[in-house]
Simulated assay, not measured.
Amino acid sequence: MEKSYHRFSELFAQLGLPSDEAGIRHFLVQHSPLPPDILLEDAPFWNEAQAALLREEKIEDADWAEVIDQLDNALRENLN
């Protein structure tokens, strides 16, 4: 079975967020840094559907888990 890789922009599109470079950058700057004691899917800026998607895909789909981890790492950086 061939493994597929998802792009950062595809995850943002799945979350219903702007998925162009400027939109992604704006989101990361606006919500960084995410405190280390808060799980990505529990961050206060997600709506219920977004949090559920992150939670489910991280557990059920290894292809999405990798890009979700990238998002988690990006939000832990201080971009402000």
Rank of each mutant, 00 (worst) to 15 (best):
M1P: 13
M1R: 12
M1A: 15
M1K: 12
E2D: 12
E2T: 15
Y5S: 14
Y5P: 04
R7V: 00
R7L: 13
R7H: 11
F8Q: 07
F8Y: 05
F8V: 01
F8C: 02
F8S: 04
S9G: 09
L11F: 04
L11Y: 03
L11T: 08
L11Q: 05
F12D: 02
F12I: 05
A13Q: 15
A13I: 05
A13S: 15
Q14D: 11
L15S: 04
G16N: 10
L17I: 01
P18K: 07
P18N: 10
P18I: 03
S19R: 05
D20A: 05
E21M: 06
G23V: 05
G23Q: 04
I24K: 01
I24R: 03
R25T: 14
R25H: 13
F27C: 05
L28S: 01
L28C: 09
L28A: 03
V29N: 06
Q30K: 11
Q30P: 07
H31S: 02
H31N: 12
H31C: 03
S32I: 06
P33I: 02
L34W: 04
P35C: 04
P35E: 11
P36T: 12
I38G: 02
L39V: 01
L39F: 09
L40S: 08
E41H: 14
D42H: 14
D42C: 10
A43K: 03
A43W: 00
A43C: 06
P44D: 14
P44H: 12
P44T: 09
F45C: 07
F45D: 06
F45L: 05
W46R: 05
W46P: 07
N47H: 13
N47F: 06
N47C: 12
N47V: 09
E48R: 11
E48S: 15
A49M: 08
Q50N: 07
A51N: 06
A51V: 06
A51W: 03
A51Y: 08
A52L: 12
L53R: 03
L54E: 05
L54C: 00
R55S: 13
R55A: 09
R55K: 14
E56C: 09
E57M: 13
K58D: 10
K58T: 14
K58M: 09
E60N: 15
E60D: 15
D61N: 15
D61R: 14
A62F: 08
W64E: 06
W64C: 01
A65D: 08
A65V: 03
E66R: 11
V67P: 00
V67S: 02
V67T: 12
I68C: 01
I68A: 00
D69C: 09
D69N: 13
D69L: 12
Q70N: 12
L71R: 00
L71F: 04
D72Y: 07
D72G: 03
N73M: 14
A74E: 13
A74M: 10
A74V: 00
A74N: 08
A74P: 02
L75R: 04
R76C: 08
E77T: 00
E77Q: 09
E77R: 03
E77D: 07
N78R: 10
N78W: 07
L79D: 03
N80E: 09
N80I: 03
N80V: 02
